[in-house]
Simulated scan of single mutants.
Amino acid sequence: MKSITINGSQRESVGKVSTKALRNAGKVPCVVYGGDKPIHFSADELAFRHLVYTPDVHTVVIALEDGIKVNAILQDIQFHPVNDRILHMDFYQIYDDKEVMMEIPVRIVGNSRGVRNGGVLRVVTRKLRIKALPENLPDFIEADITEMKIGAKMYVTAVQTDDYKILHPDNTVICQIRTSRTAIADLEEEEETDEEGEEGETEAGDVPATETDDVAAVKE
């Protein structure tokens, strides 16, 4: 998974007055949990634009004074109810040898046969919560719909790998191909029907001469 570095400064005071002063200065108060003790810091609001305002997910390297660096993931974020500015952010410290839980976006790929035949693709689950070691966290989970027919559903079991564990029931639907008024029969089923018809014609051609043919032969 890609990582973003956030340069910040540790906060000595965490009261309401100092927090308000930080926000007025264009900074965001933050805290990192998961270590020996919480780490309070602040960073410029613009430093979070590639972390917050994107459909992608990233791990974060929080770089503080004195060369202190903390690997973390975004845990929670609070926005202002009116202007949508970031009010506060919570991070969770991660370690190379400890699994972490994270929501990963699902990316639909492929050209579905069902859609080509007039079906409608409906994406039910756009993010999946998984558990994995930090090095095995994917940027996205790929769901290939190429072979899906009209009426087919794709479950989370179809995208499970050994790199991570999906924290959803096995019957959780990722997407499905729904029928529509313009939908036509599946191409493969039509081809199978055509093949059966050709076999029938071949067998008919091997049938012995008819009774009418026998009568004509006697008259001759």
Rank of each mutant, 00 (worst) to 15 (best):
S42D: 10
L46A: 10
L46C: 01
F48Q: 05
H50Q: 15
H50G: 00
L51G: 04
Y53C: 03
V57A: 02
I62V: 14
A63S: 15
A63V: 05
A63F: 09
L64H: 05
G67R: 10
I68G: 00
K69G: 00
V70N: 06
N71A: 08
N71K: 15
L74M: 15
Q75T: 01
I77C: 05
I77K: 03
F79R: 04
P81Q: 06
N83G: 02
N83T: 03
I86P: 00
F91G: 06
F91C: 07
F91Y: 07
F91M: 08
I94M: 09
P105H: 13
R107G: 01
R107E: 10
V109Q: 12
G110Y: 12
N117V: 14
G118T: 13
G119N: 07
V120F: 11
V120K: 14
V120R: 14
L121D: 12
R122Q: 13
R122T: 13
T125P: 11
R126W: 02
K127T: 13
K127D: 00
L128R: 07
I130Q: 05
A132E: 02
P138D: 06
D139C: 02
I145S: 06
E147C: 03
M148C: 02
K149N: 13
G151M: 09
A152T: 08
K153C: 08
V156H: 11
A158T: 12
A158D: 15
